[in-house]
Simulated scan of single mutants.
Amino acid sequence: MQRSIRSVAVLGIGTVGELVVDMLTESGFDVVAYDAAPPPGTEVRPLDVTDGDALAEALGAVDALVSCLPYALNVAVAEAAAKVGTHYFDLTEDVPTTNRVMELAEQHPGTVFAPQCGLAPGLIGIVGSSLAATFEEIRSVELRVGALPRHPAGLLGYAFNWSPEGVVNEYLNDCEVLRGGRRTWLPAMSETERIVLGGVEFEAALTSGGLGTMCRTLEGRAQRLDYKSLRYPGHFQQMRFLFDELGLRSDFDLACRLLTTAKPPVTHDIVFFYAAVDGTRDGRPHREDFVRGYLPLEIGGRTWRAISWTTACSVTGVVEMVADGTLPASGFIRQEDIAFDDLTATRAGKRFAVEGRI
Rank of each mutant, 00 (worst) to 15 (best):
G198N: 09
T267L: 13
P149K: 04
L91E: 03
L59E: 10
D48P: 11
L246P: 07
Y227S: 06
P38N: 02
T346E: 09
L65E: 08
R249V: 08
V271A: 07
A58M: 08
G220Q: 03
E18L: 13
A205F: 02
T316R: 00
A159I: 04
Q223W: 12
V291H: 08
T42K: 04
V32G: 04
K263F: 15
T213E: 11
I338Q: 01
R139A: 10
I299R: 08
A329R: 11
V66I: 06
C175N: 03
A133L: 00
L156F: 14
S129V: 00
L24A: 02
V177W: 07
P296G: 06
S7C: 06
G300F: 05
E298V: 13
F202H: 10
E165P: 09
L197F: 03
T192I: 11
N169C: 12
K263G: 13
T25Q: 08
E57L: 12
F135C: 00
A204V: 14
D269I: 08
D226H: 09
T280K: 12
G283I: 13
R284C: 01
L55H: 11
R100M: 10
Q335V: 10
Q237C: 13
G283C: 13
D35H: 07
G210K: 05
E176I: 11
H286F: 08
A105H: 00
M102W: 12
C215E: 11
A36E: 13
A275Y: 01
L24Q: 01
G234I: 01
G157N: 08
Q238L: 15
L19V: 13
R221Q: 00
Y158H: 15
S7Q: 05
A153P: 15
F89A: 07
Y158N: 13
F236D: 06
R194A: 12
R182P: 06
I124L: 02
P187A: 10
A222Y: 01
H108L: 12
Q107M: 12
P121C: 05
A58L: 08
E193G: 13
G247D: 06
V167F: 14
T346F: 11
R231I: 15
T98G: 15
D90L: 11
F236R: 03
P70V: 05
G85R: 00
A54V: 07
P46N: 00
D53A: 12
A348P: 00
D94R: 09
R224W: 13
G300W: 05
L259Q: 14
E245S: 04
L55D: 09
D48M: 12
I358P: 15
A255D: 03
R347D: 12
E298R: 13
H87Y: 02
F243A: 07
G125R: 06
Y88E: 06
V20I: 09
M214C: 08
L225I: 03
G212Q: 09
S4M: 08
A348E: 01
G41T: 00
T92W: 01
G28Y: 08
L197Q: 09
G52M: 14
T261M: 15
S129W: 00
P187I: 11
R240F: 12
A114I: 09
L47R: 04
T261H: 15
L47F: 02
A82V: 02
A345P: 05
R183Y: 12
L343H: 03
L172H: 10
R182S: 10
A36F: 11
G247C: 05
D30M: 14
T261C: 14
L254F: 11
G325N: 02
